[in-house]
Simulated scan of single mutants.
Amino acid sequence: MATGVEELVEMLFSMIDEAKSVPLSSEKCIIERDKALDLLDDIKAQFPMELGEAKKLLAARTDYIASAKREAELIRKQAEEKARQMLAEDELTAQARQKANEMLKVAEERSRELRRAANEYCEDALRRTEEAVSEAYDEIKRSRARFRAAAAGVQPASGTGSSGGAQAGRAVYDAEADS
Rank of each mutant, 00 (worst) to 15 (best):
M1A: 10
V5C: 05
V5S: 05
E6S: 08
L8D: 02
V9C: 10
M11I: 08
M11A: 07
M11R: 09
F13H: 13
M15K: 05
I16Y: 07
E18T: 14
E18I: 05
A19E: 06
K20P: 08
K20M: 10
K20T: 10
V22F: 09
P23C: 05
P23W: 03
L24G: 04
L24T: 09
L24C: 05
S25E: 15
S25P: 03
K28H: 11
K28N: 15
E32N: 14
R33S: 13
D34H: 10
D34Q: 14
L37F: 12
D38G: 03
L39P: 01
D41K: 08
D42K: 06
I43G: 00
K44R: 15
A45P: 00
A45D: 14
F47L: 13
P48V: 03
M49H: 09
E50A: 09
E50G: 00
E50K: 04
E53Y: 06
E53P: 00
A54K: 05
K55E: 15
L58T: 10
A60W: 01
T62Y: 06
Y64G: 04
A68F: 00
K69L: 07
K69Y: 04
A72S: 05
E73A: 11
I75C: 09
R76G: 06
K77Y: 07
K77A: 15
Q78R: 12
A79G: 11
E80H: 06
E81F: 04
K82D: 14
K82Q: 14
A83M: 15
A83N: 09
M86F: 06
E89C: 06
D90A: 14
Q95W: 09
R97C: 08
R97D: 13
K99V: 13
N101F: 07
N101V: 08
M103S: 13
R110K: 12
S111K: 03
S111M: 06
R112L: 08
E113S: 04
L114W: 02
R115Q: 07
R116M: 05
A117G: 00
A117K: 10
Y121C: 03
Y121F: 05
Y121N: 07
E123Y: 01
E123I: 00
A125E: 14
A125W: 00
L126Y: 02
R127A: 11
T129K: 13
E130N: 11
E131M: 09
A132M: 08
V133E: 02
S134D: 14
E135F: 09
Y137W: 14
D138V: 08
D138N: 13
E139P: 00
E139Q: 15
R142P: 02
S143C: 10
S143E: 05
R146F: 06
R146L: 15
A149W: 04
A151Y: 06
A151L: 12
G153C: 04
G153N: 12
A157F: 02
A157I: 04
S158A: 12
S158E: 15
G159M: 12
T160D: 15
T160Q: 10
T160R: 10
S163W: 07
S163E: 15
G165W: 01
G165P: 03
G165Y: 01
A166P: 13
Q167I: 08
G169E: 10
R170S: 12
Y173M: 14
A175M: 13
E176Q: 12
E176T: 11
E176N: 09
A177D: 09
D178Y: 04
